[in-house]
Design a protein around this nucleic acid. Structure first.
Lengths: 235, 235
DNA sequence: TCAACTATTCTTAGTGG
DNA sequence: GCCACTAAGAATAGTTG
């Protein structure tokens, strides 16, 4: 909107419409990202258009599928029934339990990422064999994977209100951090160091010693600092 | 953003965060609507929050489901580009790794479901305490969770093309099936048997023996068959 | 908690290269 | 078609009742 108040109606001119589309999709995705981060909520957006073969999505196809899954699992989509009847009671219990599940889910996500890294590195030429371009691509992907985690971590700053009375039962055994994981972390850092032109604000750079047992100077949790992963690739 | 540039990070203050959430959700939905109208495209947005029992959606729950359906049915990523250039090479590696990740993801999904079940049952009145209505609701939910599994059963007929040469490296320790999991499965089965009016298409029904060691008629590993999980969600 | 009100930043329509 | 630029208009953080 500039120099003229735009009417809320279909834009006749083809090129104008296409241009507007690109600008506004970008804007919409940015808004979604901001909302998600600022308020610590899950969100997803999908836009189909004749302009792209693939739909425009946020945060990522994978996350979208997950968020969609949650949405579809909530039978109460038809908000016709808001009354707290028998039916809703059980739904609320389910929702509450789901909350607990999310925690495990996030943990699992990290494991998946680690696994992915391993696949990429062990399955190919290794880190050394990758050029800057490839590293950048990989970095891009990793960042994409980490986005949701980042959000979660930002959310986790607060004193964890933890819905009253709900005991965090962990029925699923949680895998411990393995040496492999530690090694992978160092590799991730190396990628950052290899590709980052100069240390930027908010980017955590680390030194590493030689050998298998590299030490991370920052707590593991720092990987999930959003300012670390988010900025360079998704401004 | 007014009177101060806001930092893109989780808002610590509860009331501020809630206020911002309400404002921004409204803004986001408006943007989605405008984009859709101005450019004549389909779009949908979903936002979960601790503030609303129901997710915030646009344009409407029904439309969202429809748009989502299209998204999940989308044929294939741009397979058009067959050229195996530098850029695509890395992307293919990533995609391949992603496939592996999906397996773990789906495994996790099952664990989450089990965990959820446990939450519901252990945290509440237990299965016995539930009435038919509640069981029905729970059944619905579980069925929803199991849908992808059902698909897999249909898919598992074909020879599973399995991308050549990809070695399934498993860097992440996979949790073993615990007695608890077995028990939970039996509970699921029981609910299925107690409430299902008739066996529905795609729903895996199982017989169960008494005691702790119940057997699933299909091998557990089948859950991890990529051809099963992969297709519907990651076309 | 909520709604109304700005001051300020952000978004983007229109333009030109 | 793509960028970069700019100013009009929209969104919203912080404040007030």
């Amino acid at each position: 909107m500039a120099r003229k108040k735009v009417q809320l109606q279909w834009i006749m001119n083809d090129t104008t419409r296409r241009t507007t589309y690109k600008k506004r999709v970008k804007g919409l995705m940015k808004k979604a990202k901001e909302l998600s981060i600022l308020c610590g909520v899950e969100a997803c957006a999908i836009v189909y258009s004749p302009y792209d073969p693939q739909p425009e999505v946020w945060p990522s196809p994978m996350e979208v599928v997950r968020v969609i899954g949650e949405f579809e699992c909530r039978p109460e989509n038809d908000q016709t029934k808001k009354r707290l009847n028998q039916e809703n009671y059980i739904r609320q219990r389910v929702a509450k339990a789901k909350e607990q599940v999310v925690k495990q889910q996030k943990k699992n996500r990290r494991m998946e990422l680690d696994n992915l890294m391993y696949q990429c590195l062990a399955g190919g030429r290794g880190l050394q064999g990758l050029n800057i371009k490839e590293l950048s691509d990989l970095m891009w992907y990793i960042d994409d994977q980490l986005k949701p985690i980042s959000h979660k971590m930002e959310y986790s700053h607060h004193p964890a209100p933890q819905p009253g009375g709900a005991v965090a039962l962990t029925a699923v055994p949680v895998a411990q951090k393995t040496p492999l994981e530690v090694a992978l972390e160092s590799l991730e850092n190396q990628i950052l160091m290899d590709t980052a032109p100069q240390p930027r604000d908010g980017v955590v750079t680390v030194a590493h010693t030689e050998g298998q047992d590299m030490m991370l100077p920052v707590p593991h949790d720092n990987y999930e600092d959003p300012s670390f992963w988010g900025a360079p690739f998704f401004p």
